[in-house]
């Protein structure tokens, strides 16, 4: 803000305005410089910590370009189908692994949603049975949300062995943490009127939730669940890096062994899978939301 400008009453109006403008500009410039200064210091410090140098950029960026170009298959118009066939030489197996990946996301989302659903009521301020329940549910969901899925997956691979079970449980726990919190926030926004109606009719606590809360929040819950499913498909594609099932293990193998053509082939199939899941999930979401509005 500008300081008090006290011109002489005889001063020209243009002078006053110009003086004010100068003050404003100076303040603005000082703010911008401060912002940039802090930013530059932070970048320098983290650059030092992250072992970054110009040399690395100059060397690294062209190498990334040549890496990408090496992954692209040689395709000529005359032998198009044969080329594509050779590129996707293990296409059937890869599609199978991607299908497993989507199934892992599906099973994990379902388990996570069910657990998150039941925990969202004690974790909602207006529905919790008491302070102890509320704090316990909140803290538990927070812990499950903050520990990365991959860490859970590594722990579970040790406990349950290599395979999809570890991945499903890891993603399910994380999903429970995220959705439990989101659901509880939705629960906190519902109108008290309908609750009072159900309570006045003599409902027990379970009945209040079943008849007063769930019908109001269900469309939002389903919408968030589908969004989470889309995210989980992406997570399921990398948990194989630690041996927890899905396409990840195969992908890690071909990247580490520099089998360039296979990298691009698997990534292409993965991108198509993710896009398909997104489209289907969005369709369902719109249908549910539209149906809700018609009622």
């Amino acid at each position: 803000m500008t300081g008090p400008v006290t011109p002489k009453p005889s001063a020209d109006i243009v002078t006053i305005v110009e003086a004010q403008r100068r003050d404003l500009q100076r303040d603005k410039r000082r703010q911008t410089l401060l912002f940039l200064g802090v930013l530059v210091v932070l970048v320098a410090v983290s650059g030092h910590l992250g072992e970054v140098s110009w040399q690395k950029f100059v060397n690294g960026i062209p190498r990334f370009g040549s890496y990408i170009s090496r992954t692209l298959p040689p395709v000529s118009p005359e032998t198009l189908w044969a080329d594509l066939g050779r590129w996707m030489w293990a296409g059937g197996r890869w599609v199978g692994l991607l299908f497993d990946t989507v199934l892992i996301a599906f099973v994990a989302t379902t388990l996570g949603v069910v657990a998150g659903f039941f925990l969202s009521f004690p974790a909602a301020r207006n529905l919790a049975g008491g302070v102890v329940h509320y704090q316990l549910a909140r803290r538990f969901l927070e812990l499950m949300r903050t520990v990365p899925e991959l860490v859970f997956a590594m722990l579970f691979v040790f406990a349950f062995g290599l395979g999809a079970l570890a991945g499903v449980l890891a993603i399910a726990l994380h999903t429970m943490g995220v959705l439990g919190k989101l659901f509880s926030e939705i629960n906190e926004t519902i109108s008290d009127k309908s609750l009072e109606g159900v309570v006045a009719a003599g409902a027990s606590r379970d009945q209040v939730i079943r008849l007063g809360v769930v019908p109001q929040v269900l469309p939002a819950f389903i919408s968030y669940t589908l969004l989470r499913f889309e995210i989980n498909v992406r997570s399921a594609s990398v948990i194989g890096f630690v041996g927890a099932g899905g396409i990840g293990q195969e992908l890690m193998f071909v990247i580490n062994q520099f089998i360039y053509r296979d990298i691009s082939a698997i990534l292409l199939l993965l991108i198509i899978t993710v896009a398909l899941v997104d489209i289907v999930s969005e369709k369902i979401r719109h249908r549910i939301l539209d149906g809700e509005q018609r009622r």
């Binding site: 910590l49 992250g50 990334f64 991959l150």
Partner: peptide
């Protein structure tokens, strides 16, 4: 869309084989 469809960890793995092990690949 393509860049976004591939998870950060996959890009990290690719960059590790492009620029070597270390935080630069992660960045």
């Amino acid at each position: 869309d393509v860049v976004r469809g591939v998870d950060t960890l996959i890009w990290a793995l690719i960059f590790v084989s492009v620029v070597g092990l270390g935080p630069f690949a992660g960045i």
